[in-house]
Write a protein that binds this DNA or RNA. Structure first.
Lengths: 221, 221
DNA sequence: CCACTAATGTACGAACTAGTACGTTAGCTA
DNA sequence: TAGCTAACGTACTAGTTCGTACATTAGTGG
C-alpha cells in the first residue's frame, strides 16, 4: 500500500453529499437486510461507512426514515429493470415465459431486496404506506403483462381467466419463495432451492407452470 | 360473569408449570410474529402473561431459546394437521387439488406461523438448525405427495417431471406469498390477496395452476 | 404434618442504543 | 480573499433491555 488508495488529503476529509448519502444507503441496505429493522444498529451502520452517525440523522432524519429511503431505492432498482423489458415482439407464450424468467433472474440476483420486502411485510408495509415515492407507482411489468395477456386471450391461446395483477402474483410467489424461504426450506427438507446446479430446473419449472396454467384445456369445465 | 373466572385463591398464585409454559409460548408467539425477533421485548412478553419475566428464563433459558421453542411448537401444529391428511382414496388429480387446498387453508388460518417462518429466514434458519426437534422431521405431507405423484405418473396422467419436494415448494410458494406478502402487495398494487371475497378465486387459481402444470400436454417438448 | 423442592416473585445492574448539543471545516461565491 | 453555509466530527445523555441475584411459597412425599 504505497499510497495509491487515498489522494492524501490534509485530513482525509472530502465533502461529497451525494457520495456520503449513497454510501449510507448501501451499508444500511446490507444491515437491514441482514438483521431486520429492529435488529439493525444505527451505530453499526455508521461504523461501516466512512462517515459518522451524525450524518445519518443529518440526511435521513432517523432510523425509520433511513429504512424508508433504503426501500425506496431498492424498489427503484426493480422498476428500472422492468422498464427495460422488451418482450412484446414475441408471441404471447414466449413473451410470458421470458417475462417470468426475467422476474426469476432478478429475484435471484437481489436477495437483499427480497429480505427487505419480507421485513417490510413484518411491519405491515407501514413504510411503503408512509412514502410518497412508493405509494403511487404501479409496476411497469404490470402494463406489459396486461397487454400480452389481452393479446393471448383474444386469440384464444390463453384460456385462463386471470388479470395482470393475479398473474404477477403467481409469478412472483414462486420466485420470491425460492429466495426468501431458502433457509427454512433447506433446513427442513434438505434441498437448496437456490443451488446453482438446479437453477435451470427451477427456471423451467416456473415457465412450464405459468404457461400450462394459461393455456390449459378447459373444455371439461 | 359472576365469579366463574378465577376460583378466588388466597393470593391468586397458582402453580401449574405446564400452563405457565403454554401461556408464555402463546404470548411469545404473538409478539415475535408481530414485531420480529429483535423487535420483541422479553419484558413485554412477560407483562402479557400472568407470570413474570423470571419464568421465561426459568423455563426457556433466554430470548433465543424461547424463539426456538415458539418455532418448534408452531411447526408441530402444521405437522399435526398434515398427519390427518386423508386424500389417497381420491384419484390423483382430485387428491393433489385437495392437498393444495388444505395447504391454502392452513396458511390462511395461521398468519402468525407464516410470519415466524419469514422471521426465521431473515435469521438464516439458525434456530431450526440448532433445534433437535426440528432438524429430523420430514413433513408428513411430503410422503403423501410422493405417493400420489408416483401413482399419477405411472398411469400417465401426470406428465410433469417433478418430485414431491419440488411440488411441495410450488404449492407452498403460492400459499405462503399470498399471506406473507399481503401488505406490500396490497400497498403497491391495491389488491388484498387475503380479501375473503376473493378467497375462492385464489383457491381455484392455485388448484388450476398445479393441475395444469402436472397434466400439461408436453408433446411439443 | 414436616421437610424439601419445584415454582414463583422482586429488585436491580451492566450494557446497549437512538438521538442530540455543540463545535469545526471545506469549498463556493461575491 | 473574506465570509458564509452546507457538510462533517465528537462527546454525551436519557431511556431501554436482557439477564440475574436473592427472597418466597405452594404442594407433595415420607
Amino acid at each position: 500500500m504505497t499510497s495509491v488508495e487515498e489522494p492524501a488529503r490534509p485530513n482525509g476529509r472530502i465533502r461529497d453529499a451525494a457520495r456520503t448519502q449513497a454510501e449510507i444507503l448501501d451499508v444500511a441496505t446490507q444491515e437491514f437486510a441482514r438483521v431486520g429493522f429492529a435488529g439493525a444498529r444505527v451505530d453499526e451502520i455508521a461504523a461501516r461507512t466512512r462517515t459518522t452517525k451524525r450524518m445519518i440523522y443529518y440526511y435521513f432524519g432517523g432510523k425509520e426514515q433511513l429504512f424508508t429511503a433504503v426501500l425506496e431505492r431498492a424498489y427503484g432498482v426493480i422498476r428500472e429493470a422492468e422498464q427495460s423489458l422488451d418482450v412484446e415482439h414475441l408471441d404471447p407464450v414466449a413473451a410470458i415465459r421470458r417475462l417470468a424468467e426475467l422476474t426469476f433472474d432478478h429475484h435471484e440476483q437481489h436477495p437483499d431486496f427480497i429480505r427487505l420486502v419480507s421485513i417490510e411485510n413484518i411491519h405491515g408495509a407501514e413504510h411503503i404506506a408512509g412514502s410518497e415515492k412508493l405509494g403511487k407507482i404501479g409496476s411497469p411489468a404490470l402494463d406489459v403483462i396486461g397487454r400480452i395477456l389481452e393479446q393471448g386471450q383474444r386469440s384464444g391461446l390463453f384460456t385462463a381467466d386471470v388479470d395482470a395483477v393475479d398473474l404477477h402474483a403467481m409469478i412472483s410467489s414462486f420466485c420470491f419463495f425460492r429466495v426468501a424461504n431458502r433457509h427454512t426450506f433447506g433446513a427442513l427438507f434438505g434441498r437448496d432451492l437456490v443451488d446453482p446446479a438446479q437453477r435451470e430446473h427451477y427456471r423451467n419449472m416456473l415457465g412450464d407452470m405459468v404457461i400450462a396454467y394459461l393455456t390449459a384445456d378447459r373444455a371439461a369445465d
